[in-house]
Write a protein that binds this DNA or RNA. Structure first.
Lengths: 236, 236
DNA sequence: AAAATACAACTTGTATACACAAAAAAATCG
DNA sequence: CGATTTTTTTGTGTATACAAGTTGTATTTT
């Protein structure tokens, strides 16, 4: 039960990551060193090291002589995201199918169990974090140090965007979440079988689903409904 | 001429980057905090922050209670490199052709001038650094925050691998360097024209050339020479 | 009254001192 | 003499104090 400095440092790191991924700290928020060091019982020195590390991973932006800030998300970054994600996700899942170890596959199954539980009874934040965890494990499986930096950067903003669309507001959005869960199962199967072609295909499918979900949020039905017509809802 | 702490910090960062890229600090080297802080007139606090940042960018590996270490390069990382590089380089150059500004194109031309100068009169380190700078600018041009982390990580090890193969040992290797320079010119033209298809094709060509150069180094001619025959040296 | 400047409060950046952990050297025991 | 334990040394991690920079406010000037 040693609550030494090292564990407090890890706690702080985890706390910041979760807070940023779940938008509890929304993009652009300024972080106060004094307040945080007080709250976590750490001096500013190790705290600033944590800031530097998180900045390197893409959670924070640092500006000299100014406070650290939660990294921004603008329309241009959203566009960049849509350009980069399909390519990187596909490559990661393909490599995951090639290289996954048994221990990692077990981790992935655990993550998927947690995701299903979050879908049943969790909050939007729980779902986003569980989904983040699932994909994080696929990244570990790929084991490619050159792709992981971008993949992890993508996962951060995927979770943050997801914090909005994991709050299903229409039946279609709920259906999408169930489909996502089924795709996760298929991904596990493909990885377990070492079928990289299937894994790559599933990455594309999974991405398209995510994209649809985001579009449902960005462009809600109302805009597509001609005056006087009933809202379209495609048969499940 | 203010030699204040901030500039010394930047100096240290630049020094470490260059030393690592040029293999003056070879992979696996331990860095001594006390010695470096003495050499650059910095206390250990800002020095450690620089370490954290460079670790985030992939230059260093940090292990708790142990010295920081220049990031390793093994055979598995070389394999990962060959898998990831073509994809990421292609995407970056395609985006560069889409998004480059006039100012950036001027920067790229400057970088190419410096590269040509290094080819004529520079050391292997000069060439590797100039080449690194050229591709770094293409990364800036792409402006995609999600692809840049992996691209920059790739550039680090590309430079380090290049430190061996930018030391031409055969006429074929020299020819390859001239060809690389010509490809750089073609890349500039494609970007200036906004021709993303051409840029993507050139990325592939440029990568294949790099790959050939690396293979020439990894598998030198000697192995192909039957006993009793004179060493082959293809006509210039 | 508006703009500019000077000052004060606050925040970030750096240096130094100390606490702690790991490695190296010396001493003890089989 | 060799192996193992203890002591010494070296180097990393953290806390605190101080320096430098930034921001907001009040006063002065036009």
């Amino acid at each position: 039960m040693k609550d030494d400095a090292k564990s407090r440092k890890a706690e702080l790191t985890e706390h910041l990551k979760v807070s940023i991924l779940t938008l509890r700290l929304h993009p652009g928020t300024d972080l106060d060193e004094a307040h945080l060091s007080d709250a976590f019982g750490l001096s500013r020195t190790p705290l600033r090291e944590v800031f530097r590390q998180l900045a390197g991973e893409g959670y924070l932006d640092l500006r000299t002589n100014r406070s650290a800030r939660v990294s921004e998300m603008s329309y241009t970054t959203l566009r960049d995201f849509f350009l980069a994600a399909p390519m990187v996700y596909g490559a990661i899942l393909r490599l995951a199918a090639q290289n996954a170890t048994h221990a990692q596959i077990d981790e992935l199954k655990d993550a998927q169990q947690a995701f299903k539980a979050a879908l049943r009874a969790g909050s939007g934040a729980d779902r986003a974090l569980a989904n983040n965890r699932f994909h994080d494990v696929t990244g570990e499986m790929s084991g490619n140090v050159y792709l992981l930096p971008s993949f992890n950067r993508l996962l951060i903003d995927h979770a943050r965007i997801g914090m909005t669309f994991y709050r299903p507001q229409t039946s279609k959005m709920s259906d999408n979440l169930s489909e996502a869960s089924r795709q996760h199962d298929a991904i596990i199967a493909a990885i377990e079988a070492g079928d990289e072609a299937a894994a790559a295909q599933l990455a594309e499918d999974h991405w398209n689903l995510s994209r649809d979900q985001i579009e449902l949020f960005v462009m809600p039905d109302a805009l597509d409904v001609p005056m006087g017509n009933p809202p379209l809802s495609k048969p499940a």
